[in-house]
Measured scan of single mutants.
Amino acid sequence: MKVIFLQDVKGKGKKGEIKNVPDGYARNFLFKKGLAVEATPANLKELE
Rank of each mutant, 00 (worst) to 15 (best):
N20M: 15
F5K: 00
Y25I: 07
G16I: 01
K32D: 10
K32P: 15
N20A: 11
L35V: 04
A26M: 06
L30E: 02
F5D: 00
F29R: 05
F31P: 03
L30H: 01
N43G: 06
K33W: 15
M1Y: 06
D23N: 13
G13S: 04
D23F: 13
V3Y: 00
K32H: 09
K32W: 07
K10R: 13
V9S: 01
N43P: 04
K10D: 13
D8K: 04
V9M: 04
L30P: 03
K14R: 13
K15S: 06
L44K: 06
N28V: 05
E17L: 03
K14N: 10
L30R: 00
L44P: 04
G11K: 06
T40N: 09
T40M: 05
V21S: 02
M1T: 11
E38P: 12
E38L: 12
D8Y: 08
P22Y: 07
F31I: 12
F5P: 00
K19N: 04
Q7P: 00
Y25M: 08
V37T: 06
E48Y: 11
K32Y: 08
V9F: 03
K32G: 08
D8N: 12
D23T: 14
A36K: 00
G24I: 12
K33G: 09
P22G: 08
K33R: 13
L6I: 10
V3H: 00
A39T: 03
N20Q: 13
Q7W: 09
I18L: 07
A42E: 14
P41N: 10
K14S: 09
K32T: 11
G13E: 02
L30D: 01
F5E: 00
L6E: 01
T40E: 05
E38W: 06
F5L: 07
P41A: 14
K45S: 10
E48H: 13
G24E: 14
I4N: 01
A26G: 04
E48S: 13
F5Y: 07
L44I: 13
A42N: 09
V37S: 04
P22M: 08
N28L: 11
K45Y: 10
K15T: 08
I4K: 05
K45D: 09
L35T: 02
V3I: 08
E46G: 12
N28W: 11
K12S: 13
T40R: 05
K33M: 15
E17R: 02
D8G: 05
A39K: 02
G11E: 05
R27I: 15
K2N: 12
F31S: 03
F29W: 11
K2A: 11
A26T: 07
E38H: 06
K15M: 09
G34Y: 09
I18T: 06
N43Q: 09
P41G: 08
V37N: 02
K12H: 14
V37H: 04
I4M: 08
L6M: 08
N28Q: 09
E38Y: 05
V3D: 00
G34K: 09
G13Y: 13
I4G: 01
E17M: 06
K12Q: 15
N28Y: 12
P22H: 09
L30M: 02
F5V: 00
E38Q: 09
K2G: 04
K32R: 12
P22K: 09
K45P: 06
D23A: 15
K32F: 09
E46V: 14
A36V: 05
D8Q: 04
G11N: 09
A42W: 05
I18R: 03
T40F: 06
L35Y: 12
I4Y: 08
A39D: 02
A39Q: 03
V3R: 00
P41H: 10
A42M: 09
A26N: 04
F31W: 02
F29N: 08
F31Y: 05
K33H: 15
K45F: 10
V37A: 09
V37F: 04
G13K: 01
V9W: 04
L35S: 02
N43I: 12
E48P: 09
R27W: 11
L47A: 09
I18S: 03
F5N: 01
K14Q: 09
G16D: 04
K15P: 04
L35N: 01
Q7A: 14
K15E: 05
G16W: 10
D23E: 15
A26W: 09
L44N: 05
P41T: 13
V37L: 09
F31V: 08
I18P: 01
F5R: 00
E46W: 15
I18W: 02
E46M: 14
P41F: 10
G13M: 03
G11H: 08
V9A: 02
G34Q: 09
A26I: 06
D8V: 04
K12I: 15
A42T: 11
K33Q: 13
G11L: 03
L44M: 11
N20T: 15
V37Y: 04
K19M: 10
P41L: 12
I18F: 03
N20I: 15
G34N: 09
R27G: 03
E17V: 04
